[in-house]
């Protein structure tokens, strides 16, 4: 029997378990300690682990990300929380030029076992600077691993895998879905980095997605089932390395693929999935790979913009019908 917990609790449990196991693991970021986390992910952690291991920082993303990198090079296992990945843009120098490069630059002399984590993607009417998805930016960079999930079971298992991983891992969460509930087992477990999950088995079309857009896809799959369309839904969970085998296996069965991706379309996760599928399953495709991304624009504040900008179940259903050539 499992327990039902929210995404924020799942991430917290994963961090706490690893911090109890390994004294070299610590959490650092803005408002993580005394305030209990801007989104309460780290609630109670200061009380359990004390101020040396749950460390509040000033608003200085470049600085504390770099402090994390240095600490990781010198034997610790930092978890660096960004209040949102939008603010982590300031820290990209340390993530991309250092965390991702330390091992190669030093020819293996130094590794950088660090986790950068925080919410990615839109979260309502937050306007241009607070509504961006960074999976494709980070996944573009060799040296980084990128995890993006909202299912509490996956999140707990993946944050644990990320913390014990000897390479830098970026964990992408969701501001809007920190309250999303799901079942986790009583016993300890890890979810491996680099493995997708087939959420719903189906025969007519494969839908690939990740993070918050999984909820959109689940709703679409239910609607499609009512119309007798059997969709197979795959949750990537890890963006880099991409589990292309699971996708290709599914496409060989369904012969059709829709990618639902909260990235801007240009050089997105959907671009990469589409490329690999045409390369490895070309002879199995009965329709062009079709994708639904956010609009190729910045996201303005008004509700009408948010509605237009994001993928939604109707857009997914329409795309599925188009690749099935049904009205």
């Amino acid at each position: 029997m499992g327990r039902i917990i929210a995404l924020r609790e799942a991430i917290r449990e994963g961090m706490c378990e690893e911090m109890r196991r390994d004294p070299n693991v610590f959490l650092m970021g803005e408002e993580v300690a005394l305030y209990n986390g801007a989104y309460k992910v780290s609630k109670g952690m200061l009380a359990e682990f004390g101020p040396n291991r749950v460390v509040d920082t000033p608003i200085a993303e470049l600085g504390f990300a770099g402090i994390g990198v240095g600490a990781a090079m010198n034997g610790l296992r930092p978890i660096i929380e960004f209040m949102t990945w939008n603010f982590a843009v300031l820290a990209f120098d340390q993530i991309v030029n250092n965390a991702a490069k330390t091992l190669t630059q030093s020819a293996g002399e130094f590794k950088c076992p660090i986790v950068f984590r925080g919410p990615s993607g839109s979260a309502g009417q937050l306007a241009q600077q607070h509504s961006q998805s960074f999976e494709s930016w980070l996944a573009n960079c060799p040296g980084l691993k990128v995890v993006s999930c909202v299912d509490p079971y996956d999140a707990k298992g993946l944050i644990k895998s990320a913390i014990i991983d000897d390479d830098p891992v970026c964990m992408m969460e969701s501001e809007m879905l920190y309250g999303l509930e799901g079942e986790v087992p009583e016993h300890e477990y890890y979810v491996p980095i680099g493995k997708a999950a087939v959420r719903t088995e189906g025969t007519d079309v494969t839908i690939v997605s990740y993070n918050k857009m999984m909820e959109v896809c689940k709703a679409a799959v239910l609607e499609l089932a009512k119309e007798g369309i059997s969709a197979e839904l795959i949750d990537l969970r890890t963006i880099r390395p991409l589990d292309i085998d699971t996708i290709v296996q599914s496409v060989k069965k369904t012969n059709r693929l829709i990618v639902v991706d909260e990235s801007w379309p240009f050089a997105s996760i959907s671009s990469e999935v589409s490329y690999q599928v045409q390369k490895y399953a070309f002879d199995y495709l009965d329709a062009p790979v079709t994708r639904i991304n956010t609009a190729d624009t910045s996201l303005g504040y008004a509700p009408t913009f948010v509605q237009e900008f994001l993928p939604n179940p109707d857009k997914v259903i329409k795309a599925v019908k188009s690749v099935l050539y049904v009205k």
């Binding site: 608003i59 939008n86 603010f87 843009v89 300031l90 009417q125 937050l126 306007a127 241009q128 600077q129 607070h130 303005g300 504040y301 008004a302 009408t304 913009f305």
Partner: peptide
């Protein structure tokens, strides 16, 4: 025009350059 919301007002006429949402 409803694009900025609470954090992003701008007005060239009033020499008001925003409205920035990223600290500093």
């Amino acid at each position: 025009k409803g694009k900025g919301g609470s954090m992003h007002f701008f007005s060239a006429e009033h020499r008001f350059f925003g409205g920035n949402g990223i600290v500093g």
